[in-house]
Simulated scan of single mutants.
Amino acid sequence: MTTDNAATHKLSPGRALSGPQTELLNRVVSFCEQHHRDESALFVIEGAAGTGKSVVLNAIFNTLQTRARNGRGDDPLQGLQNMVIVNHPEMLKLYRNIAAIMPNLRKSDYERPTTFINKSAKTGKRADIVLVDEAHLLLTRPDRYNHFAQQNHLEEILRWARIVVVVFDPLQVLKFKSHWSVDLLDTFRKGRPSETFHLDTQFRVAASPATRSWIDALGQGRLLPRRKDPSFDLRIYDDCAMLYADLCACNAKYGLCRLLSTYDYPYTLNGEDHFITEGAFHLRWDRSLPTEKQPWAERPDTIDEVGSVYTIQGFDLNYAGVILGPSLFYDAAHDRIGVRPERYEDSAAFQGRDGIAAPDEAKKRVILNALNVILTRGIHGLFLYAHDPALRKRLLQT
């Protein structure tokens, strides 16, 4: 079993890579060598949740920075100015924590996209190579509340870097203001050198192919027959309090077990605690602690909180407990999970709908994307509880 610093270990540049990950590292480094004098080049890394995208990205960056800072004079990557960008505060904490213990990495090598763009515009200096983790979280429209006045994060990053390497998964788009699609990403490939590499080996969920298919289907709203799997602990609960008790027992034994929920219960950033109640179960949402240097998933005290997609995206857990909240129900007519966007409490996810075709369907897609993210966190187990009694009953029948 992994321990409570599993995320830091997982993303360590010293971690051994698989064959495809090593091939990807070599491909990206070769791409950078070939195009380091070009005005603009784009490399796209695609892959579903759990395929090791962030792992290999940080290994690539460590290789680039080692050569940039220690390379010989004839090394084409020597002296280059490189960055990693991620629009996810919890992941940024993790990357900076790792940088503090690596000889060729610095905390200042990692930044949020808006900060990078605004600093570059102010100084007029371009970076050489920029790696973007979780590129599906980049903004696709202005967000003046967060000081981004331009139209598209990636467009601006390409403006301020010679080579851009992005990690992308369209099934992890969570907001209208980050409304990415494969087609939209394709528009940025045109007119510049571009390569794509797809990672498809699942490294996180240590389950049989049948169980992984069951989880993947659930994240799309589909209900498949469930098979016994001795390699993965998949449980459906009729009692949320019992789920939490069992999860706490697993956490005491193995560590790195956390409870998560769809964003279907009221939560406001007002400094107060907000709670999720399901029968005898009553627990607060995760607290917003922007000054906390340790990511939410790695803090031992957060077993006493319920995490959201925003605190857990990009992280691994040994066991994940997941509450399917009121926005999800059993659609008996189609024998699948139905979605009620009006019950989804993340109103910010649906701001900026201009230009989005079929916004009602897009809302459902965002909710299912968020579900997909939280369902795919557990390495060794997944415990499920549904708010809707009919959905609970149907899940128990799978």
Results as ranks from 00 to 15, higher is better:
227 R>Q: 08
6 A>P: 05
173 V>C: 11
386 A>C: 01
319 Y>V: 14
375 L>P: 01
215 I>Y: 02
172 Q>W: 03
251 N>Q: 09
383 F>K: 13
286 D>H: 15
289 L>S: 07
16 A>G: 00
314 G>K: 15
244 Y>S: 09
260 L>W: 05
112 R>V: 15
169 D>Y: 08
376 T>P: 12
165 V>C: 10
289 L>G: 02
110 Y>G: 01
32 C>H: 15
253 K>F: 09
242 M>P: 01
224 L>N: 05
296 W>V: 01
291 T>A: 12
319 Y>F: 10
151 Q>K: 07
175 K>S: 11
345 E>G: 00
389 P>H: 04
200 D>V: 14
329 F>Y: 15
58 N>R: 09
163 I>F: 04
116 F>R: 13
76 P>W: 11
29 V>I: 09
329 F>N: 02
83 M>D: 09
118 N>I: 12
4 D>P: 05
4 D>C: 13
315 F>V: 07
109 D>Y: 01
354 D>H: 07
200 D>I: 14
87 N>D: 15
33 E>C: 12
219 G>M: 14
103 P>D: 00
113 P>R: 09
382 L>Y: 11
115 T>P: 13
156 E>Q: 14
361 E>N: 00
172 Q>V: 06
304 D>G: 14
207 A>C: 00
13 P>W: 01
350 F>H: 11
291 T>I: 07
226 R>P: 03
274 H>T: 00
363 K>R: 11
160 W>E: 04
240 C>A: 10
197 F>M: 07
209 P>K: 02
140 T>M: 03
136 H>Y: 12
44 V>K: 14
26 N>P: 10
247 L>M: 01
